[in-house]
Computed example of a mutant assay.
Amino acid sequence: MQSLQIKRPSWEELSQYACVFFDFDGVIVESGDIKTEAFMELYAEFGIQEAVKKHHLENQGVSRFDKFEWIAKYLLNEVYTAEKGAELSARFSALVKEKVIASPSVPGIAELILALRRNSAFLVVASGTPEAELKEIMNKRGIDVHFDEIHGSPKSKASIVQSVMKAGAYPSGKCLFIGDASTDYDAARQEGLDFYARLTPELADYWSSTDYRFGTEDFNQIVY
């Protein structure tokens, strides 16, 4: 496993961004493990938990429906239907929603969000969580009011970035994406945005092969 390369930003650097995109799980709230465990529990009866866990961790930020379809096709050899996906999603939500609402924030993220808000940055959540569920969770946590827009699946993160940048006429050099998964990095790279990686040991090998602008294990130590 590669060691994590810390690239800590200064507030002077962060204050230059006019538009900032945030992933949700693992960036705003410490909910990554909750969802990993839920995926494994969904498929416990089939004895494929480790394969499910591996696929989930390698595709963090991808819509749960895409994962359900992949698991049905490649691990269960079953025909996947929209009805089956809806059933699995309802069961998944029942396993995770209240736990995510109650989960702690990532250290330092609240202070960063408030500082960016005071600096008049346009703040956007771009998540792989179904949008209605995401908005409900953020509302119950009382944090939805800090963001200008909140987007989830079925929209892709790249399409969210594209639409927000176009609507606000934000140049790519004035936009930052803060994420913890390959889907976040790919969306940022596709549109030419700077990327701030929330670094975790699970993805150390992946991050060692990417060129992120900033990277820290949490969001403490930023001096405002």
Rank of each mutant, 00 (worst) to 15 (best):
Q49Y: 01
A51Y: 08
W70T: 12
D33I: 15
P9Q: 14
S103W: 03
E83Y: 11
E133D: 15
K140M: 15
Q49L: 02
L75M: 15
R213W: 02
S93T: 15
L88W: 14
N59R: 05
S31V: 10
A18P: 05
E69N: 12
N139M: 10
G192C: 04
N77I: 00
Q49K: 12
V124A: 07
S172G: 02
G85D: 06
E217N: 09
I160R: 00
G47W: 13
P104M: 08
I143R: 01
K166D: 02
G85E: 06
E111M: 06
L42S: 08
R198T: 06
D194T: 07
Q190P: 00
A188G: 05
V223A: 11
K73A: 15
I143P: 03
L95F: 06
F68S: 08
S63Q: 04
D66V: 15
K84H: 12
D186Q: 12
S93Q: 14
H56M: 13
S89G: 09
T36F: 13
W207C: 10
T210V: 15
V29S: 13
K99W: 02
I28T: 08
A169W: 03
Y43N: 10
S127R: 03
A72V: 03
G168K: 15
R198N: 08
C175S: 05
F39K: 04
K155Q: 12
E12Y: 02
F46D: 11
A167L: 09
F122D: 01
T36E: 12
P104F: 10
K73M: 07
D148Y: 07
P9L: 13
Y43D: 08
G215W: 10
V125R: 00
E13F: 02
S156Y: 04
Y212T: 10
S3V: 12
G85N: 07
L42P: 03
K135P: 09
S31F: 06
F214S: 03
T36L: 15
I113A: 00
S103N: 04
L116K: 04
S209D: 08
S10M: 02
I101C: 08
G179C: 09
E45Y: 07
N119S: 05
I160F: 04
I71T: 11
I222W: 03
P9I: 11
Y206R: 11
Q221S: 13
K7N: 06
Q16L: 14
K7I: 06
H146R: 05
E41W: 04
Q60D: 05
A169L: 09
G47M: 13
K174C: 02
T183N: 05
E149P: 07
E191D: 07
R91D: 08
S105T: 01
W70G: 05
L116M: 04
E50H: 15
D218F: 09
F219C: 03
L176F: 05
V124R: 05
D33E: 15
E30W: 08
S172K: 08
E87H: 05
A169H: 11
E58Y: 02
E69G: 00
P9R: 14
I178V: 14
I28D: 01
M138A: 06
S105L: 11
E202D: 14
P154Y: 03
S120H: 10
I48W: 04
R91S: 12
G128Q: 11
G61H: 06
K155W: 06
K135H: 13
W11R: 01
S159A: 10
A158N: 02
E98I: 10
T81G: 04
Y185C: 00
